[in-house]
Amino acid sequence: MSYLGVGVSPGNVPVYHSTNMKVLDRKIKITELVLRFVILGLGVLSVVLIMTDSQVREFFTIQKKATYTDMKALVFLVVANGLVAGYSLIQGLRCAVSMIRGSLLFNKPLAWAIFSVDQVMAYVTVAAVSAAAQSAVFAKMGQSELQWMKICNMYGKFCNQVGEGLASAIVVSISMVVLSCISAFSLFRLYGSSKIKKALW
């Protein structure tokens, strides 16, 4: 009789089913690998879409060019997505190498390091997306009480491309949150497995 990879022997001693856990480990690693490269791809896409976005409007004889640097929230979003994309590339390569070599498990210090950085990256991406989304709402809807104009009425192309970049960043943020949960599970499972091993002795 077994449940989640742990069974009970006739002597009521917990038995660790290593085969089931190896399958679970491989599924977790595949999920992590896919998410790392999704974050890498969409993070780079978001950065490219926002950084290359610009639109020039002429007001009487004055030309005004809109770029992402005009909004500090977009600068923050670009930096955050650049960082998380670079980090995901490194971690994705680590996952790929560990799967090729067959070493799916890692030690506690490394697990703590990955968990900690994943948490930081998740918070940074969520904060960046939240700030950019709030700025996007003001640009789209304006704020009549503060006499803020609807900027997107004047810079429609610019706003549309920023919206595409923001949509990519939202997926990156959600994926990073899921990854932080996976790294937390991988970390605390190491402590759970040590308890099982102690019970066997």
Rank of each mutant, 00 (worst) to 15 (best):
E58I: 05
A136R: 12
N160W: 03
G165I: 04
A133Q: 11
A131Q: 07
T125A: 07
A85N: 09
A128K: 04
V172N: 06
V84T: 14
V8I: 14
V47E: 00
K108Q: 14
V117I: 01
L45D: 03
W148R: 06
S98K: 13
S168K: 01
Y16C: 01
C159N: 05
A66S: 09
F76T: 12
F188C: 15
V79L: 09
E32I: 12
W148A: 08
G5I: 05
A132T: 03
I174C: 03
V84G: 06
S54G: 13
I50G: 00
S175I: 06
L83P: 01
S103D: 09
S168W: 02
R94A: 09
A127K: 01
W148S: 08
A169Y: 03
V47R: 04
S135Y: 10
K198H: 06
S180R: 12
A111N: 11
E145W: 04
S194K: 07
P14K: 10
P10I: 08
K64M: 07
A132D: 04
F158Y: 15
V78S: 05
I196K: 07
V124R: 00
F59E: 00
R36I: 00
K27T: 09
D118I: 05
G192V: 05
A131R: 02
I151N: 07
V34P: 02
Q55R: 10
V117T: 12
M99Q: 02
G43H: 01
S183E: 15
L146W: 07
K150D: 11
